Simulated assay, not measured.
Amino acid sequence: MSLISPACRDALQHWLEGLAALGGASANTITAYQGDVTSFLAFMSSHTGGPQGLGALAQISTADMRAWMASERSAGTGSRSLARKLSSVKSFYRWLATREGFEPTAVLAVRAPKFQKKLPRPLAQDAARAVIETVELQSTSDWVAARDVAVVTLLYGCGLRISEALSLTGGDAPLPQVLRIKGKGEKERVVPVIAAARDAVDRYLDLCPHPQMQDAPLFRGQRGGALNPRQIQGVMTRTRAQLGLPASATPHALRHSFATHLLEAGGDLRAIQELLGHASLSTTQAYTAVDTAHLMEVYNRAHPKA
């Protein structure tokens, strides 16, 4: 931060605090914004010959923006990451321009680099079932095996993020037929809980040696503390190795699988958006492309070659 003037540093801090307090941005989002804008401000200070005040930011030109993007490219920043950084900078500039009363067109008019959006990599339905059946074989402790099965069943059966599953507390048990989940940006959504998930959690609770308390984490580590997501990631790594699944078979892939399999079964895209907690329908529409790709694969296998 030494290259950045105190005025710019203070402005950045005020913006981040506003995002956290009023915008409901998650801690991870705030950290990403801070890193993106800090590196941008540091570049501009160096580019213009030293720490500059807020007035200098109002004078940034399209050529300055191109110089920053070229610098990022030469440092190995890919198109996707550069697009994200530019989005962070534009968000900061919109706020700063309103506060300081200048015209931010030179920054806002810069186009983000194009990149190929990665489609979700869901598991086939039989592979998803095999994962749930094989997860319990990765532990010699019955209660740990039951715990891992319960978490994985929630990811696939309810479309939860791993952070959402691990944020459940003793007060949520026994699981009801419907859960209220707080997702990204503290957005709340209602998620139906399938019987298999409720049964898996009940079995884990029957075997868990640690007492369940209202405000304590539902899923516990070996010593009774909150379960670390790395434990579930490790279980998935061992499970996919045993089943011969690709590296894309991660805990998050189970959430993608939940959405894709619902769509294949005729689920409504808007309803799936609500279940996943996506802020934008365009995010959910990625699954349409996955489903189309699957249909074309089946078609190509079945169609006689000319």
Rank of each mutant, 00 (worst) to 15 (best):
Q242P: 00
S79P: 08
A173E: 10
A27W: 09
G224P: 00
G101N: 03
S5C: 01
H210P: 00
G76L: 12
E164F: 01
S45R: 01
A197R: 06
R230V: 12
V37T: 05
V298C: 09
E264Q: 15
G224K: 03
E133Q: 14
I181E: 05
G221D: 01
I60F: 12
G234F: 15
G221N: 03
L281Q: 08
H252I: 03
R94N: 15
L275Q: 07
Y93F: 11
L166H: 05
D206W: 09
V235Y: 07
S5F: 02
I272V: 15
Q13C: 01
S61R: 13
L245W: 01
G78Y: 06
A21W: 06
G171R: 02
D36F: 14
A173T: 14
R270S: 02
W15T: 03
G23M: 06
D142R: 14
H256C: 13
A265Q: 15
C158F: 06
T48R: 14
V193S: 03
K305A: 01
P122D: 06
S248L: 04
L3W: 10
S39A: 09
G277V: 11
M69K: 01
Q177I: 02
L108S: 03
G55C: 04
P229N: 04
S61P: 13
S79H: 11
G35M: 09
E100F: 07
P51T: 12
T250N: 05
G35V: 10
A11Y: 05
F40P: 03
G24I: 15
M296E: 15
G157L: 13
F115N: 00
S280Q: 15
A146R: 04
T105A: 09
L12K: 04
L263M: 13
Q242G: 07
Q177G: 10
E186D: 14
A7T: 12
L281S: 02
K305Y: 06
V290S: 11
L137F: 13
E72G: 00
L155I: 02
T284C: 10
G267F: 09
W15A: 00
P304G: 03
K90G: 07
G24V: 15
K118G: 09
T134R: 03
T250Y: 04
C8T: 00
Q212L: 13
S257W: 02
L119M: 11
P217M: 04
A112P: 01
E133V: 13
